[in-house]
Design a protein around this nucleic acid. Structure first.
Length: 113
DNA sequence: AAAATGACTCTTT
DNA sequence: GAAAGAGCCATTT
């Protein structure tokens, strides 16, 4: 089929990307987390940064703390704000000596659709 | 219309 | 094991 190249991404409007990201994040159950790259992959894109951008702009109304980086670390500059959320949801954490002071055990709570 | 920005990821040194 | 650089995507100015 000649549309093989177009099948790479859905024919959704650009602004729909934001709703798509928020929908995926909203689907993440409590106590579980997903990486930016995973969320982007679920949407059929590899823009992990684009997902982070959406969170920075519109994530204020979504469980952004359930979206973490591939290294298991919370969003830059928001570690202190996300930590109480993980503690309240029972997300497995590990103490670290970094600035964040903790790391998320993605291997134990990585959410997959 | 083009360039710059950003809550990222991966590979290599 | 840690650090650096390049790559990729969508939004904003």
């Amino acid at each position: 089929m000649p549309q093989a190249a177009a099948a790479r991404r859905a024919p959704e409007p650009p602004a729909g990307f934001v709703e798509a990201v928020l929908a995926v994040v909203d689907d993440i159950p409590p106590g579980c987390v997903a990486t930016y790259g995973d969320v982007a992959a679920i949407l059929g894109s590899r823009g992990a940064r684009a997902v982070g951008q959406v969170m920075a702009r519109y994530g204020s109304d979504a469980p952004w703390w359930r979206v973490v980086r591939a290294g298991g670390r919370p969003p830059s500059g928001h570690a202190a704000s996300a930590r109480p959320h993980y503690d309240a949801e029972g997300t497995p954490l590990v103490a670290t000596t970094d600035e964040d002071g903790y790391r998320i055990v993605i291997a134990a709570c990585r959410w997959r659709p």
